[in-house]
């Protein structure tokens, strides 16, 4: 099976801090990582390839530094990496991102399965998978926690809010995965690839390589516009209650009952 895995380089959000003066995100010094769920997508791809043969291609759209994620994916065992990098791709919303990724997958041509994470931790939209599937005109299976590959089809267990469902879809198909699907392997030192080496299996494609125009992608091709960003702040008037446990308990219960909150009635 030939598999394309979508991987995104994201800032490690557990380290993301806000500049108290400007209210902006401090990105300097924040480590970039492969989006956690995308590692699970890659692991699934590698397992399928190891069982059935074929090729795993990782595809990422991002600034030149995103090559690090591709190198890491190759060190985990992927066969080929493609970075979509161009000034005109910058500032894309999910519409423009799915156009760009979709074009690249069409150019790859040979694929039976596209795997992606359910959502990326920086945006949390979970939109790219379904949008790329629609762009390609292939079925989508989202929130997948178990995946089985058959001849010409896949069977997936999808998580629902109050249960799960088993669904069969013909290939080619796009699947977005949850982290409960598997345990990703570690990159190996032997697999580490110097991306600057002339024969490294990494390609960098720009807008002309994809045959897109500047107005179709990036900020110019986006249908949504961010008009404002701000830091959420609490607007509560905090009242401290002091005294022994029994005393604060009495004060609190009294205060809540005065606000007509029914406690245990």
């Amino acid at each position: 099976m030939d598999i394309v895995v979508l991987v995104k380089q994201v800032p490690n959000t557990t380290e993301v801090r806000i500049d108290p003066k400007t209210g902006n995100l401090i990105r300097e010094g924040v480590e970039s990582i492969i989006n956690p769920e995308d590692r699970h997508a890659l692991e699934a791809a590698l397992q399928i390839r190891d069982n059935t043969g074929g090729k795993v291609t990782v595809l990422s759209m991002g600034p030149p530094q995103a090559i690090d994620g591709i190198c890491e994916a190759l060190a985990m065992g992927a066969d080929r990496g493609i970075l979509l990098s161009d000034r005109i791709f910058a500032g894309a919303d999910t519409w423009a991102t799915s156009t760009t990724l979709g074009r690249a997958i069409r150019k790859i041509e040979q694929f039976d399965l596209v795997l992606a994470g359910r959502q990326a931790v920086d945006g949390d939209t979970a939109q790219i998978g379904p949008q790329v599937a629609e762009y390609l005109g292939i079925p989508q299976l989202t929130y997948v926690q178990k995946l089985e590959v058959r001849e010409g089809a896949v069977i997936a267990e999808r998580a629902l809010e109050d249960g799960c469902e088993h669904i069969e879809a013909p290939t080619p198909v796009l699947v977005t995965v949850l982290s409960s699907l598997n345990e990703p392997r570690y990159p190996t030192v032997a697999g580490l690839i110097d991306s600057t080496r002339p024969r490294a299996p990494i390609e960098i494609w720009n807008g002309a390589d994809l045959g897109v125009k500047a107005y179709e992608v990036g900020l110019a091709g986006s249908l949504t516009q961010v008009v404002k960003t701000f830091t959420p702040k609490g607007a509560r008037n905090t009242q401290y209650l002091e005294g022994s446990p029994a005393a604060v308990a009495a004060q609190l219960i009294d205060a809540l009952r005065k606000k007509e909150i029914r406690l245990g009635e």
């Binding site: 800032p11 959000t13 557990t14 993301v16 801090r17 806000i18 995100l25 931790v121 920086d122 945006g123 949390d124 949504t224 516009q225 961010v226 008009v227 404002k228 960003t229 701000f230 830091t231 959420p232």
Partner: peptide, 11 residues
């Protein structure tokens, strides 16, 4: 966005 560290208004 960014794990709730920032809010964005979009049109």
């Amino acid at each position: 966005a960014f794990g709730g560290n920032i809010m964005a208004t979009i049109v």
